[in-house]
Design a protein around this nucleic acid. Structure first.
Length: 447
DNA sequence: TCTGGGGTCCTAGGACCC
DNA sequence: TCTGGGGTCCTAGGACCC
């Protein structure tokens, strides 16, 4: 067995000890489905959900897809279609989606102990050992239960590798007679299915590679499947070779049932309108840094280096684009808001240029490590009492904010006015209530 | 007028060391 | 004037994902 790092295993001769069975459970049009759970009148209607800044369309109901609304389409380009067809438009409501996601994942635990939470709307399950029950029918049971328990429709794709399970999930979603679950478990089915899938729809083949492959007359997933491994290895590296083997039923990707610690944490926003003011920029970056520090503490991590960036409109005239980036480090790895903010402010001064019309900014936490095994600074021996005080302050800080709402307590650097939170960097004109995570926004049932 | 936010991995090339 | 061979670490950039 040859090991290529923590995440992957690859070997053509002796791969995984047993035949594996992966199921991909994928929530259909997840954000739209979440909105529909609490607004049932949206059922059957075209609905879209917008990105953070109400900038572009990031989720579409089937009806909206059928009307030709594209994924990632800027809102302003879709205005005419939206008006003409009476498409319902929602700002994104991440507290709601996060909570609904947790409910779905929770429901899945009832079906197997081996589960990988892959993204907000997808999970991989190991179904090895459930073959006798009939895999497809087990998949349909999962779908029915999740729908009943959470209100979210899902599709289930089952196969020997994750990449094939993804494709099976695709069929489960698209094909009306699949009943929401589809299994690829033999050579004939595999070839028949792959022949119908464009190469660019394979998980791991993005736009650039699809274009390159098309230029070599590789159009379908089956064409790719039948391409010699050495050719793929040479042009697409080990990543491409892994995808190829996975398509052939050789599992190179394992179920990752414990989430590895993050390596980077990032908080960034586009501004509602261009910002020139140094003070407003400073306050925004300070707010991002504070939010990033919260995320570090939530994950039990500390960071070594803070990177700050700010950029003007990248869609503006060529040559006008400015993007500045600079790094700074706290005296020792930290997750304390004051340390993080101070370093971020130092970096900010090297990024800010007077006169530039900034369209967005952000911070990135790098060199993350678990808080309990930090390398302490040789030249600044740890002061246990001071550390303890800082820790207690942060705990209190997080507790108050958890109870009263994010931003209830914050550092002065982020600005006194609420302006920093609403006016500058987010517009959300069409957000639905936080039905499940905010007491004041609970839905009211009238009997 | 208006174009998201947050992640991962791999590779090539340079710096530096012996 | 001549100017090896290898290892490791870091960074930037390119690809991908949801």
């Amino acid at each position: 067995m040859c090991s290529l790092g923590r995440r992957y295993r690859i070997d053509t001769a002796v791969y995984l000890p047993m035949r594996q069975v992966f199921a991909l459970v994928d929530c259909n049009n997840f954000f739209v489905s979440c909105e529909r759970v609490f607004a049932p009148w949206l059922e059957g209607r075209p609905v879209v959900v917008l990105s953070n800044n109400d900038g572009c369309i990031i989720a579409r109901s089937n009806e909206a897809k059928a009307l030709g609304i594209a994924m990632g389409e800027p809102l302003f380009k879709a205005h005419a279609e939206i008006r003409r067809h009476g498409i319902e438009v929602y700002s994104s409501n991440y507290p709601l989606y996060g909570d609904m996601s947790a409910r779905v994942m929770n429901a899945l635990q009832a079906f197997t102990p081996d589960i990988e939470l892959y993204s907000i709307d997808e999970a991989f399950l190991s179904l090895a050992g459930f073959e006798k029950r009939g895999l497809t029918s087990y998949g349909r049971d999962i779908r029915t239960a999740v729908r009943r328990w959470t209100g979210i429709p899902v599709s289930v794709g089952i196969a020997e590798t994750k990449t094939l399970a993804k494709i099976a999930g695709h069929i489960a979603k698209k094909s009306p007679d699949a009943g929401g679950a589809f299994t690829i478990d033999d050579e004939a089915t595999r070839r028949r299915v792959l022949a119908k899938i464009p190469v660019g729809d394979i998980w791991g083949i993005g736009r650039r590679w699809a274009k390159m492959l098309n230029a070599h007359a590789i159009e379908t997933a089956l064409d790719f499947h039948d391409t010699p491994e050495t050719w793929v290895r040479k042009r697409m590296g080990v990543t491409g070779a892994r995808t190829l083997l996975e398509l052939r039923g050789v599992a190179c990707l394992d179920l990752e049932n414990q989430t590895p610690d993050k390596q980077t944490i990032r908080v960034s926003r586009s501004f509602a309108s261009p910002v020139e003011s140094r003070r407003v920029m400073r306050e925004s970056v300070a707010a991002f840094a504070a939010r990033a520090a919260e995320k570090l503490r939530r994950d039990g991590l500390v960071c070594e280096v803070i990177n700050v960036f700010a950029a003007t409109n990248r869609f503006g005239p060529k040559g006008d684009y400015y993007r500045g980036t600079a790094s700074a480090a706290p005296p020792a790895p930290s997750n304390h808001t004051a340390d993080i903010t101070r370093a971020a402010m130092a970096a900010f001064e090297r990024v800010y240029r007077p006169g530039q019309q900034f369209k967005g900014a952000g911070v990135m936490m790098l060199g993350l490590a678990r808080a309990e095994n930090v390398q302490t600074n040789l030249f600044a021996p740890p002061d246990a009492a001071a550390d303890e005080r800082k820790q207690r302050l942060m705990n209190a800080f997080d507790a108050v904010n958890a109870k009263i709402g994010r931003g209830a307590v914050r550092y002065g650097a982020t600005g006194v006015a609420e302006r920093g939170r609403r006016g500058v960097y987010t517009v959300q004109n069409r957000r639905s209530p936080r039905y499940t995570t905010s007491w004041s926004e609970l839905p009211i049932v009238r009997a």
